[in-house]
Simulated assay, not measured.
Amino acid sequence: MGKSMYTFVAITALALVGLAAVPFNAAAEVKEVRLAKQYGLGYLPLIIMEKQRLIEKHAKAAGLGDIKVTWATLGGGSATNDALLSGSVDYISSGVAPMILLWDKSKGAVKGVSALISSPNYLNTNNPAVKTIRDFTAKDRIALPAVKVSIQAIILQMAAAKEFGQNNFSKLDKLTVTMKHPDAMAALLSGKSEVTGHLTSPPFMFQELDDKRVRTVLNSYTVLGGPHTFNVFATTKAFHDKNPKIYAAVFAAQEEATAYINKNRRAAAEIYREASKTKESLDDLLKEINQPTVSYTVTPHNITRFSDFMYHTGTIKSRPRDWKDLFFPNVHATKGS
């Protein structure tokens, strides 16, 4: 090998060493972002983000040019978790409990980006014999998005633990069935299904109560002792680390969508009505969004109550030190819990 070749090899080696030391974040930024949302008013910030093309707006402002943004609508925490783990999507939205479960199973490789909404979940029933959860029998079925793992399933376990004792937290699990919220509402209101209970969220819980045969036997705010985050936004640590500009653009888009909802309630209700194809009136939707118990915010609330319960019941193996373990740093400065 001649001197010139040695020089070339040496320079190439040094260049490679230098490149290895340089972060590849800018070069690794993706050109497409894939997101999954679910059914209901709990996902209104994401609907606003989609309809107003806010991710595209903030990505362009960050110098990323025109990026492709694709959205999917899935039917529950299990489906969204599977989509993220399989690499089918980059971001998911789900209840608090599925996100905590995914954080545990992935050993922290999946975390929350932020909260989406604080809202109670109601357990409604059409069975006149059911006054409290103690009155459900083997003949009843309680519909929720995913047996054992959805936020509704964990809320029911928490309620059972309070009612029947900690060791009996799963007492009502045998009565639960997995159904998408729209299908479960239809089953409950038909009066002809085995489904006599539905543990659900806005707007479905309000729509069901318009029927005089239906009443609420459980409110999740009562179970947890106060307001709690219902839905969260999540992604993988790999996506977060490799795409810092995209990540920042997505979060900025969510913050803008949340601010829009809080300043333009009627317009937000109109967007939801058009996107969801619901038959509800605009006034009814606006009334639901304006409920004092419903708050659109990126700040996580009462997360630790969920994670502690799930750890003590063995649903998760690792116990977060606090709620910040479950979320990326962009919300750590908020007054979360």
Rank of each mutant, 00 (worst) to 15 (best):
residue 71 W to N: 00
residue 57 K to S: 12
residue 316 I to Q: 01
residue 43 Y to Q: 04
residue 158 M to Y: 11
residue 295 S to V: 15
residue 186 A to G: 10
residue 190 S to E: 12
residue 261 I to G: 02
residue 37 K to M: 04
residue 257 A to P: 00
residue 309 F to V: 07
residue 118 S to T: 14
residue 80 T to P: 06
residue 104 D to F: 00
residue 29 E to Q: 14
residue 307 S to H: 08
residue 194 E to T: 05
residue 214 V to G: 02
residue 63 G to Y: 00
residue 236 T to W: 04
residue 308 D to R: 11
residue 136 F to G: 03
residue 228 H to L: 09
residue 264 N to W: 07
residue 333 A to T: 15
residue 229 T to I: 09
residue 232 V to C: 10
residue 286 L to C: 05
residue 305 R to Q: 15
residue 152 Q to C: 00
residue 183 D to E: 14
residue 177 V to P: 03
residue 250 V to C: 12
residue 144 L to F: 00
residue 102 L to Q: 14
residue 43 Y to S: 07
residue 153 A to Q: 02
residue 51 K to S: 09
residue 171 K to Q: 10
residue 206 F to C: 03
residue 176 T to D: 02
residue 175 L to G: 00
residue 190 S to R: 10
residue 69 V to F: 01
residue 172 L to M: 07
residue 166 Q to S: 15
residue 221 Y to R: 08
residue 65 G to I: 12
residue 279 K to C: 04
residue 55 I to Q: 12
residue 224 L to Y: 07
residue 62 A to W: 02
residue 55 I to N: 10
residue 101 L to P: 07
residue 134 R to T: 10
residue 16 L to N: 02
residue 139 K to D: 11
residue 62 A to Y: 04
residue 239 F to L: 15
residue 329 P to L: 12
residue 125 T to G: 07
residue 38 Q to N: 15
residue 271 I to H: 01
residue 116 L to I: 13
residue 46 L to C: 13
residue 153 A to L: 01
residue 15 A to V: 14
residue 95 G to Y: 05
residue 78 S to L: 14
residue 19 L to Q: 12
residue 121 N to T: 12
residue 119 S to N: 12
residue 20 A to K: 14
residue 316 I to F: 07
residue 258 T to A: 03
residue 13 A to D: 07
residue 188 L to S: 04
residue 205 M to N: 00
residue 286 L to F: 08
residue 296 Y to C: 10
residue 258 T to Y: 00
residue 78 S to K: 15
residue 59 A to Q: 15
residue 330 N to R: 13
residue 313 T to A: 04
residue 111 K to R: 15
residue 305 R to E: 13
residue 10 A to K: 14
residue 249 A to Q: 11
residue 159 A to F: 06
residue 224 L to A: 06
residue 28 A to S: 15
residue 174 K to E: 15
residue 208 E to S: 09
residue 217 V to R: 02
residue 297 T to H: 09
residue 171 K to Y: 10
residue 61 A to I: 04
residue 100 I to V: 15
residue 42 G to K: 02
residue 232 V to K: 01
residue 109 A to R: 11
residue 47 I to M: 00
residue 296 Y to G: 06
residue 38 Q to P: 08
residue 313 T to D: 08
residue 271 I to Y: 01
residue 92 I to N: 07
residue 320 P to C: 05
residue 97 A to R: 05
residue 124 N to I: 04
residue 182 P to T: 04
residue 8 F to D: 09
residue 6 Y to D: 14
residue 91 Y to I: 00
residue 4 S to L: 14
residue 289 I to P: 02
residue 172 L to A: 01
residue 157 Q to T: 05
residue 81 N to V: 13
residue 240 H to A: 11
residue 278 T to K: 07
residue 278 T to H: 10
residue 218 L to D: 06
residue 303 I to G: 00
residue 160 A to K: 02
residue 258 T to K: 05
residue 296 Y to K: 13
residue 124 N to G: 05
residue 251 F to N: 06
residue 74 L to Y: 03
residue 330 N to K: 13
residue 253 A to Q: 10
residue 245 K to G: 02
